[in-house]
Amino acid sequence: MSETAVKNAPIGESFKEKWQKNALYSTGLVLLIMIIAQTIALGFDYPSFGDWFSSWGKNWINILRNNAPVGIVALGMTFVIISGGIDLAVGSTLVAVGAVMMILINGNADGILTKMGVEGVPAFAIGIGAALLMGALIGLVNGELISRSKLPAFIATLGTMKICRSVTQHFMQTVGVKVPRDFTAIANTKIGGEIILPILYWLAIAAILMLVARKTSFGRHVYAVGSNERAARLSGVHVERVKALVYVLSGFLVSIAAVINIARIGSMDYANAGSGYEMDAIAAVVVGGTSMSGGKGSILGTVLGMLIIAVMNNLLNLVGVPPFLREAFKGLIVIVAVLLQKKEKAS
């Protein structure tokens, strides 16, 4: 608050105003309403408060855990969209990097590393390293096509999306789908009696990326490029590099999501893994208040956006809306969220 505004307004009002001015005000409000509705739907029919609370908490852990992988993908998508681009390839990248890892290590003992006698933690480390590298590489290809060859982001990533999934499906027909048993510890090790590791990964990455967005040159440059590419360039921003790097970051985060996904389930479905991730991630980003035209948005917003969609899904489940219909609500909330944001901007 500026000095003059504080002087002119009573403290209480200025605090409220400050809140309402916050870009995430309405997003937070929607989430709060969702959570209240969901809590009511869950019911209070428990013998004690402790029973109710543990059931409520377990439900929450379920929601968060199930959405952690796509939540991580959405974080990368946020940077891409703020830079003025879009990454449709995330779902296919997930399956491609998963495949690279499975070729190196898999539970049928026909993984390359397993045959070479490398097993256990070293093998996992190499497998995960290869996956992260592959994800970053696919991102780099997207990034170079967009920044250097000046392809529209939509087209470039639509192309790599098709290529990644099709090539993976073809070459993975004979490769085992299971990971070694120990590998699942990466996601399934219990902490405090619950499987919350995926949630912790998600939140830790979100916290780091929040700092990246706000406090690093790269992060600020992403906003600058998305808001006014020409002005950014004339201010000495390496526009091509920034544009390429957001896709590398996106690909890298997708690989992390892939590792968590595989470790969580213990296997990989080469046909369907990650499918629909691109749209779910974009939905979370948009509901979280990030502008599709670039320049505006936040990591925290995306986390809230993801939660809104996840809690809504849970709520629909609790009140008995059939699964096929739930996607319609997802579509609806995206449209409503953006309409609300537009209205807010106009007022």
């Binding site: 600020r220 906003y223 600058a224 998305g226 808001s227 006014n228 020409r230 002005a231 950014a232 004339l234 320049g295 505006k296």
Partner: peptide, 9 residues
């Protein structure tokens, strides 16, 4: 406006 101002910042 076109070349110097980054309006969202």
């Amino acid at each position: 406006k076109e070349n110097a101002i980054i309006k969202d910042m």
